[in-house]
Design a binder for these strands. Structure first.
Length: 479
RNA sequence: GCCCCCAUCGUCCAGUGGCCCAGGACGCCGCCCUUUCAAGGCGGUAACGGGGAUUCGAAUUCCCCUGGGGGCACCA
């Protein structure tokens, strides 16, 4: 709304390449993208692969593919932190030299032991500061013992840390409750906090938009940032987390959570972005179905919700149907073709494919489900089968053999011109109630009792194939 | 255990002291349309967690409780 473009805005999406893109991460990427585009700023992609053991090249590639699929293009990067270890090492050395960080000789096992003891005692876990004030001789002694050494950042002992979150307002915490934390591992690889602070300064990141799970760590990053001379003019916005409908952490138990799964199931990126944008944000005018550029236009970070939101697959399904219906047939075909090729291979027939999409579009939820309904068009006669549940429906239909026989006779007897085969008069003549007998006809011809409009289906399938299937169903019935 | 964040229909949002006995969307239920299932149309169900306080007046402000989520790693 007439807001001036702020070219100085620089945001980054910085995933760890330890797995596929999760809906939570995708939402973070989306909101960074929206903020950058709304302000005419720069969107940077940074790969946080400082944990070499868990990071994988395939995910570095996969995450980029998925972001592109979503339509979230970035302006700079990807910057790999694994290429910048020298910078982090230098920053760590500088902090050590200035006494802002110290060498810690405690092993992970020892720390865990002490934490467990503290917990058992009813005290809080967290680094106890054992190596905080070691003398030179003590350090030398530990080193002589061959002990490994990490680097810890020294946090203030007293006072209050505060920062203003763009979404939540002022957030405060007592420094006394923030323990000293590791910034460099024993093997000299940097920990996320260090790399994060160094890079945000180096890359001139002005706004940090990330998940609420990182809210508490902001105080630490800010302290590091200040110690590194980065100044404090960086603003933070923490997005509410995405949960399952049962308010528990979103997991596979709740259905698909990886964006690749949505893509492969035939969800449209427009629908996914649209749904995700509405999870924690909404435009002033209450619009729901919105294209990405419309969301960009209306987006404001202050309008983001404070409370965690549940991911509702049912609403995404509805949204996806809305977007499928907005596509032209050509567009739908272009989106569906890759999935259809995987599914049908050589059997895929372009004309039947387009015809199937045309009659299925208005009822589709996902492209995958639509393709399921089109399966009967491409399956060879000797592989055609009626689903178990659909067969039960067929077999339980009153006077089913009579209906199927009538349909068979009709199809065999009409003049064939390739037009949809209207069975309404036939049903009326036999005093069959459509709602009662149609499912059986669908099952016999399409293999499922609910599918694409069968009048069109018969025309697409052709007379012979239709007759073969009707006879097969009747024969099986006679057994 | 300690710390932080949050709290409106089942779910996602609107609501920033009176326009709210709370509005929209998804879901669900019913009706219509209809070649199945859908889609579409119409209608319906359903919420301000509890208690104090401030105020002429609170969903909206403050406090407490309760509840939910997150954090307390040589993960990010």
């Amino acid at each position: 709304m007439g807001e001036t473009a702020d070219m100085s805005v620089r945001v980054r999406f910085s995933p760890a390449p330890t797995g596929s893109l999760h809906v939570g991460s995708a939402r973070t990427a989306l909101f960074n993208f929206l903020f950058a585009r709304h302000h005419g700023g720069t969107f940077v992609l940074r790969i946080e692969d400082t944990d070499r053991a868990r990071s994988k090249d395939e995910w570095v590639v996969g995450i980029q593919d998925t972001l592109r699929w979503l339509g979230l293009d970035w302006d700079e990067g990807p910057v790999l932190q694994s290429d910048r270890f020298a910078e982090y090492l230098a920053a760590a050395a500088d902090l050590l030299e200035r006494g802002l960080a110290y060498e810690c000789f405690c092993t992970p096992e020892e720390i865990k032991e002490r934490n467990d003891a503290a917990m058992a005692d009813g005290r809080s876990p967290g680094y106890d500061g054992r190596c905080r004030d070691l003398g030179d001789e003590e350090r030398a002694a530990f080193a002589a013992e061959g002990r490994s050494r990490s680097l810890r950042f020294r946090t203030p002992d007293e006072g209050t840390s505060r920062f203003v979150d763009e979404i939540r307002g002022e957030v405060t915490v007592e420094w006394a409750s923030v323990h000293d934390f590791v910034i460099l591992r024993a093997d000299d690889s940097p920990i996320f906090f260090l790399a994060n602070a160094v890079d945000d300064i180096a890359m001139g990141i002005t706004h940090v938009i990330r998940g609420e799970d990182l809210l508490d760590s902001t105080h630490r990053v800010l302290a590091l940032r200040e110690a590194l001379g980065g100044g404090s003019q960086q603003s933070f916005a923490h997005l509410p987390l995405i949960l399952g409908t049962d308010r528990a952490k979103l997991s596979k138990r709740h259905g698909a959570v990886a964006l690749e799964e949505f893509r492969d199931a035939g969800y449209l990126p427009e629908a996914v972005c649209n749904y995700l944008a509405l999870l924690g944000w909404s435009p002033d005018d209450g619009r729901e179905v919105m294209a990405l550029d419309e969301v960009v236009e209306a987006f404001t970070i202050a309008g983001v919700t404070h409370a965690a939101a549940a991911f509702d697959h049912a609403k995404l399904d509805w949204m996806n149907g809305e977007w499928i219906r907005r596509l032209t047939l050509d567009e739908l075909a272009a989106r569906a073709r890759p999935l259809a090729e995987v599914r049908f291979g050589d059997r895929l027939d372009e004309d039947l494919f387009l015809a199937g999409l045309r009659i299925g579009q208005e009822r589709a939820v996902t492209i995958g489900a639509l393709l399921d309904q089109m399966d009967f068009l491409f399956v060879p006669d000797d592989e055609f089968e009626i689903g178990a549940e659909s067969w039960e429906v067929l077999a339980a239909t009153d006077r089913v053999d009579v209906v199927l026989g009538a349909v068979e006779e009709h199809v065999a007897g009409i003049e064939w011109d390739g037009a949809p085969v209207d069975l309404r008069d036939l049903l009326k003549a036999g005093e069959f109630k459509p709602r009662k007998v149609m499912p059986a006809i669908y099952a016999a011809i399409e293999g499922r009792h609910a599918g694409l409009p069968v009048f069109d289906a018969i025309a697409l399938l052709g007379r012979e194939k239709t007759l073969v299937r009707l006879r097969a169903a009747r024969a099986r019935l006679a057994k």
